[in-house]
Write a protein that binds this DNA or RNA. Structure first.
Length: 508
RNA sequence: CGCGGGGUGGAGCAGCCGGGUAGCUCGCAAGGCUCAUAACCUUGAGGUCGGCGGUUCAAAUCCGCCCCCCGCAACCA
């Protein structure tokens, strides 16, 4: 049995989760569930990044002590994942001792290998960004922080540096040899372009406690804490036993997929691979950066006040419909536009009209005509089913593996539409008047089999709906496996019809 | 000449790598049906594939030039 280790970024806890966080975790959840459907052993890691001055300040701003504050925000994240049916296997917090231990081990090891050194640093520091700038960088930016354009502070202090520069050549050749390491392709090009146009400077990985107090204490020098990103990235290995549980680490590492947002591409595509290489640890197989949701064509931002709250959406449309919208509307590399109109439109046409109505009308006929008991009769696969089911079976996994969720769903819904058409073409209401009961039963059996198969394919996207379908077909959840996507697996159906899966949403 | 995306019927997108009748969803129009969530099914209207030029028997797809839009600040997936 093969394994699949998938990760979200660890979310920064200076504020509560919004739709973007939900999107990232839902993508990973869809992948994780898809892999489980295929019988793979999955380890789905998520968690929180809790150090750094910004967290400290956020805690102060809300009048809480830091550890109470982070606990509370972490609670918000965990609750959201529960409500969104995010099936992670482990939740790591960078404030956990186990993690901090590993961070210290990593630094000690890199130091012993000669990749960390202490140096006096002269330059400029941007407090809010926790970033250093050389005089040239500040000058180019016009005398301010090159990132945020705010005032910088001239500083001269000693810090610890990680020798990124030493590995620049290695990283370039690694990327050249592994063109699928960073996905999608545009992001790969971006990283390559960045490396071609810039010289990698060594990375400052310590912060004096006088300035940043909330962090992992630097192992070589108690007057410093570890730079928050250096601490954070290590979660991907500390969570699976690096430096503490060799068997576990061997079982799961390397990660098969680091899913990230495009904003943190450089940390994952440059710092992280070099850190691992310097440690002598193998690299993750794929780093995939997804796009961003715009809201009504505008960038989502706190300052614009247009942050979409996932809880409001769960309340309005439900978890499955929200997951479906986010995964169906755009494929993960691209940016997308979020609007309530688009959400409602998508739900009504795909979920209520096509899928929900198909299930409802089919079950209704099964009850009306056969009192809910439908048995296989000459259950050969209708020709029109075969025509769409074959490409579905053939390409579903391929699309899922490449995170092309819209393409996978298109295939599934093409089959849903074929079944709706099959009902029109067969005209069961006419057959009923002619007392052609055995033909109707054959027809209904075909539909029930088709719906059963659809429920399996939809499970990664809408786990609760898939389970509800199986339940109404009188089947057990264990049948959620790609192996079950074959025709005529069941002999009898005992229908237990419930309310429509997805009620239409009326807009006022 | 900074870097990276993008410009395809009313809207949103796929197709472009490996040229060969322009595809999907929504919307719109007409019709059909009634098992069904005013749902479903059929048919139709609607595109000089940003512009110009080149390669080719043939270009949305390859090459060159040009125009326009977005990101490459912060909060932040």
């Amino acid at each position: 049995m093969s394994k699949f280790y998938i990760t979200t970024p660890i979310y920064y806890v200076n504020a509560s989760p919004h739709i973007g966080h939900a999107y990232t975790s839902i993508i990973c959840d869809c992948m994780a569930r898809f892999k489980r459907l295929g019988g793979e052993q999955v380890y789905y890691l998520t968690g929180t990044d809790e150090h750094g001055e910004k967290v400290n300040q956020a805690a102060k701003a809300s009048g809480e002590d830091v550890s109470g504050f982070v606990d509370r925000v972490v609670g918000n994240f965990k609750k959201l994942w529960k409500d969104l049916d995010v099936s992670y296997d482990f939740f790591i917090r960078t404030t956990q001792n186990e993690h901090k231990e590993v961070v210290r081990k990593v630094i000690t090891l890199l130091h012993s290998k000669g990749d960390i050194y202490k140096a006096k640093y002269q330059g400029f520091y941007c407090m809010p960004c926790e970033s250093f700038w050389t005089p040239t960088q500040v000058k180019d930016a016009g005398g301010v922080c090159a990132l945020c354009k705010r005032e910088v502070e001239k500083i001269e202090e000693e810090n610890y540096f990680f020798k990124l520069s030493k590995y620049e050549g290695w990283l370039k050749s690694y990327l050249k040899k592994n063109p699928s390491f960073i996905q999608p392709k545009t992001r790969y090009n971006e990283v390559k372009g960045f490396l071609d146009n810039n010289v990698l400077a060594d990375l400052c990985i310590s912060r004096p406690k006088s300035r940043v107090s909330w962090g992992v204490e630097f192992p070589l020098d108690a007057s410093y804490v570890v730079y928050v990103w250096f601490d954070a990235l290590i979660n991907y290995i500390s969570a699976v036993g690096y430096g503490s549980d060799d068997d576990k680490f061997k079982q799961w590492w390397p990660a098969d997929l680091h899913l990230i947002g495009k904003d943190i591409l450089r940390h994952h595509a440059i710092f992280w691979p070099v850190m691992l290489h310097a440690l002598g640890v193998s690299l993750p197989r794929v780093i995939f950066a997804h796009g961003w949701w715009k809201v009504e064509e505008e960038k989502m931002s706190k300052s614009k006040g247009n942050i979409v709250n996932p809880y409001t959406l769960i309340k309005d449309v439900g978890t499955d419909a929200l997951r479906y919208f986010l995964l169906r509307e755009i494929s993960p590399g691209a940016d997308g536009n979020f609007s309530y109109k688009a959400v409602v439109n998508r739900i009504n046409s795909d979920l209520a009209n096509d899928l929900g109505n198909l299930v409802y009308r089919t079950l209704n006929m099964a009850q009306k005509y056969f009192d809910g008991k439908v048995t296989a009769r000459k259950c050969s696969l209708p020709a029109q089913f075969k025509k769409t089911l074959a490409p579905l079976a053939q390409n579903y996994a391929k699309y899922m593996d490449s995170l092309n969720f819209p393409a996978a769903l298109d295939l599934v819904f093409a089959f849903v539409r074929v079944m709706n058409k099959y009902i029109e073409d067969t005209k069961p209401w006419a057959l009923w008047k002619e007392k052609e009961t055995s033909r109707i039963e054959e027809f209904l059996y075909a539909l029930l089999e088709g719906i059963r198969i659809v429920s399996v394919y939809l499970y990664p996207f809408m786990p609760a709906a898939a389970q509800a379908i199986l339940r109404q077909l009188g089947l057990k959840e264990e049948l959620l496996s790609l192996r079950e996507c074959k025709w005529a697996q069941k002999e009898t159906y005992s229908i237990k019809k419930e309310k429509p899966l997805f009620p239409r949403i009326d807009v006022d």
